[in-house]
Amino acid sequence: MILVEALSKNFGSVEALHSISFHVRKGEIIGLLGSNGAGKSTLLKILSTYLPPDAGRITIDGVDLLENPHDIRRRLGYLPEGAPLYPEMRVHEYLTYRAALKGVPARRIAEKMIDVMDLCSLRSVEKKLIGSLSKGYRQRVGLADALITEPPLLLFDEPTLGLDLTQQQQISHLLKGLAPRHTVLLSTHYMQEAIAICDRFLFLHDGKIVFFGTSKELQQVSPFPTPSEK
């Protein structure tokens, strides 16, 4: 599904990603972990086609990201960090606009809206202004936007950051239900959340991959027990 080869990205003298390579299979949920500044968001921004890489090659479903960014955009749903939205729009207006922009035919938008609002539990706030919603609901609107075209690849940057425990659990439950129909790359700071949702983990440190594998493999290399073992 995703093949990344020798990917590098610099911001001036800061090396955000240093020649990283990995392969993600279809239907997997991958947790991107690492401290602040490790390169998680940069990697997602590059995969979403927002940032151009300095070097390396990325193919998604066999399509080269640099050669056909427009094709890639049709195959992905992206939730950036902080779920940026237009505060002056109502939830249903925003999702209608996004669905139309992503190429959903006009006759199918209403049906897609119902599906995605049910999935993300947004029916009770569909007529509310986005600016008046709580952080948890804004994250759900961002998730609904990413999911509205049912893209094969989903990229989520810190989807549960700043949410209370109940909201975190609700969103984690929603994300877990996305496999195997979608391939998901999920950036998070919460190890427990990653273990509950993800099939494999990609640890980044200073722009380099320090671990990529399953939780079982992680136990073998880590001296600390994972939260599920405690």
């Binding site: 950036p80 237009y86 922009l101 992503k102």
Partner: peptide, 14 residues
């Protein structure tokens, strides 16, 4: 400023 540029340009729009 809002960050919506990321969602805007990563949609399939020229």
């Amino acid at each position: 400023h809002l960050g919506t540029m990321e969602t805007l340009v990563t949609a399939p729009v020229a």
